[in-house]
Design a protein around this nucleic acid. Structure first.
Lengths: 232, 232
DNA sequence: ATAGAAACTTGATAAATATCAAAAAAACAA
DNA sequence: TTGTTTTTTTGATATTTATCAAGTTTCTAT
């Protein structure tokens, strides 16, 4: 592994506080792999052999049942996914595929579990990471259960807006089909929801979005820090 | 604390592998409290001061937004709740109230966190508990995103059926209003969903339910071990 | 036992969301 | 570039789910 990649990984909250030598040892067993766009990295139901860390690109977590499919969340650099399955030595509950060309760091499960036992700081980090994932899942569940489709879109836009600098402009990071599934609606409905939001100052031009009346949008969306990340 | 209660707690997966003396110490700071039915134990937004363990009765976790309210899950003895908030020293994302007269063991957050640092077995148990909670949340999220209301009800009935001995009889543990909210629908809709399920051998008499054609119900429900607990 | 409240059900209707079909726009490859 | 594919949008319609307004039943407390 090139050291330039390692330093990025090291900054991940999951690894930042752990012992240097333990980190080195764990990383010796790890490897970095490149995937093309739309490549299925893991399938739900498979056993968890590696912890995956998105170093570059973007990964979509999705699930199927019956004939239906739903996007559960997207993972951006530098975050890990399927940590819980690794720790429990259980099967994946979700599939993962790249949305674009991506680099994934893969750390064998046994190294994660082994290091957990011997490095206290790492153990603490794992608990924080897991708790964060759990709370994110609860938030998304609340979002879906307590809000209408339009409210979900409005809040998602406000969240993107905040992350991207709050300057009235948003760039959608993935296609509208994926966004629709992420929000729990059909693409047709998303398109109509965008039309409804025009009257709240949402101007759509492809993947570029302008918010000309953030206050009005907030009145509609009613963002809530107990549902939305980093939002008041 | 009476020892009879302590032995029940000790059997909780979260505590079963930990060191005796560490357990004793942690429990000295804990106390058992009785609550009447419909008592709000914690409110979303409050800071997490205690880990709560349901020793007797039943607790409902729910959340509000706008004017809406939704039941997120129910907690039966002997399980804990709000572990993630305690470990992160964060605010609760959900409120909790008793559904019936209940006894709750309350362990101060600092004792949980302190013991985590010094007892390796406890640390491991916490990770397993957290992972389990995370995976349950993902499963419920999948259930809501990938199934219709009738399918959700059918699968829930099959799950209750399995837990209660698979003898064709189910006893609903909470009222239909709560069940409806848990399943993400209105009480009116639940009532109609039960009517629809008549043709699949579901006979409802108050809180007593008979399943006269489990196979037909399974064909409709398509239970999935990646969504439903303990189900094939 | 019985009044009162709460829970549950049913019917009528409205709103939200999905589906189907087709057109328009954008992305992509030869 | 130009044709082809994919994505996105729009319109028409169907389905699902929610709401409102009674009823009915069940529970509960006196």
């Amino acid at each position: 592994m090139r050291s330039i990649d390692l330093s990025t990984i090291r900054e991940l909250e999951l690894f930042s506080n752990m012992d240097d030598s333990k980190f080195e040892t764990m990383m010796q067993a790890a490897f970095l792999q490149s995937f093309p766009a739309r490549f299925e990295i893991i399938s739900e139901g498979d056993t968890a052999d590696f912890l995956h860390v998105v170093v570059e690109g973007c990964v979509e977590l999705y699930a199927k049942s019956n004939g239906r499919e739903a996007t559960m969340s997207t993972v951006q650099p530098v975050r890990s996914f399927i940590l819980a399955a690794v720790l429990m030595d259980a099967v994946y509950l979700m599939s993962a595929r790249t949305l674009q060309r991506s680099k994934i760091l893969m750390i064998p499960s046994e190294n994660i579990c082994g290091t957990f036992e011997v490095d206290e700081a790492f153990a603490k980090s794992i608990v924080i990471e897991l708790s964060t994932c759990y709370r994110s899942a609860i938030k998304e569940y609340k979002d879906l259960k307590l809000r209408t489709a339009i409210e979900r879109l409005a809040n998602r836009l406000l969240q993107y807006h905040q992350v991207q600098g709050e300057n009235g402009k948003i760039e959608l990071l993935h296609g509208k089909k994926t966004l629709a599934s992420l929000l729990g609606m059909t693409p047709e409905n998303l398109s109509r929801a965008f039309n409804t939001l025009k009257q709240y100052g949402v101007e759509v031009d492809g993947s570029a979005i302008k918010l000309t009346d953030v206050n009005a949008l907030k009145v509609l969306a009613k963002p809530n820090r107990l549902i939305d990340d980093n939002q008041s």
